[in-house]
């Protein structure tokens, strides 16, 4: 016991940068993820970062996830990644002070993996939440059929959206962009995906900036909680410099 107390004390005084903390999800890839995303930075596993996701993927091509970091103050960035996906980075979200630090999205999963949300606060500390996702199917049937709708052939670039008032004063924006979101991993099809999305209010103030990557599901369906005033304007760009735009009225 004495020995253990000593070790704890040592950990307490040691600079937090020295080594990444032990992974509560016990992922084999955690040391690599820590090195890749957080080298030289402070990382803390923190229950204040809530990741809402079913334990098993019904549709591996569109796993719904909602990240909520509202319990943390001064959130600057939310980075979402999956340790064991062939492409690990899913998105980087930068809510302004005119957005609640929460985001909903769907992603493509290749195999069972931890899904993590890393939330950077103004003091530079990364707060990590996450859960394991089982991608081997479940229950009374096979996973749902691939979306593979090919909807984008006719409707490429169209945006469906809606803005709702929330009881807490924020406004919920949900939007769907028709886009194939090709990963480049399927034979002969080059990577082709939405890269950035910017949200502004009627006064032109930036509400949020989002970077999306290959694993985001086809026809990205995104949920945001925004402040600001009046209409929300949406501006997006993909890897082939196509531009997407639309305005949502309250």
């Amino acid at each position: 016991m004495r020995c253990r107390a000593w070790l704890l004390a040592a950990a307490w005084v040691a600079p937090a940068l020295a080594a990444p903390p032990d992974d509560p999800l016990r992922s084999p890839a955690w040391p690599y993820m820590a090195e890749r995303y957080f080298a030289g930075q402070t990382v803390r596993f923190d229950a204040a970062v809530r990741v809402l996701m079913a334990g098993a993927a019904e549709d591996p091509l569109a796993v719904p996830v909602h990240v909520d970091a509202d319990a943390l103050a001064d959130v600057r960035e939310i980075l979402v990644f999956a340790d064991l996906n062939p492409i690990t980075t899913i998105l980087r979200y930068e809510p302004s002070e005119l957005a609640r630090p929460a985001i909903g999205f769907r992603f493509k999963v290749q195999q069972a993996t931890p899904l993590r949300a890393a939330v950077r606060t103004g003091d530079g500390v990364w707060h990590l939440g996450g859960a394991w996702l089982d991608a081997s199917g479940g229950g009374c049937t096979t996973p749902s059929q691939a979306s593979g709708s090919g909807l984008w052939k006719d409707r490429f670039g169209e945006i469906d959206a809606r803005l709702w008032p929330r009881a807490d004063g924020w406004r919920r924006l949900r939007l769907q962009l028709i886009h194939p979101m090709d990963t480049g991993l399927a034979g002969g099809i080059p990577a082709f995906y939405l890269e950035t999305l910017d949200l502004r209010d009627a006064d032109g103030r930036t509400l949020a900036h989002l970077q999306t990557f290959e694993p985001v599901a086809e026809n990205p369906l995104l949920s945001f909680d925004l402040g600001g005033r009046g209409v929300v304007s949406i501006r997006g760009r993909d890897t082939q410099a196509n531009r997407f735009a639309g305005t949502v009225a309250p």
Binding site: E158, I159, D160, A161, R162, R174, L221, A245, T247, V248
Partner: peptide, 15 residues
Amino acid sequence: LETQALRRLAPDVRE
């Protein structure tokens, strides 16, 4: 159901 709840946006500025 959730996609039915959305509304098609008029493409305002296609740059």
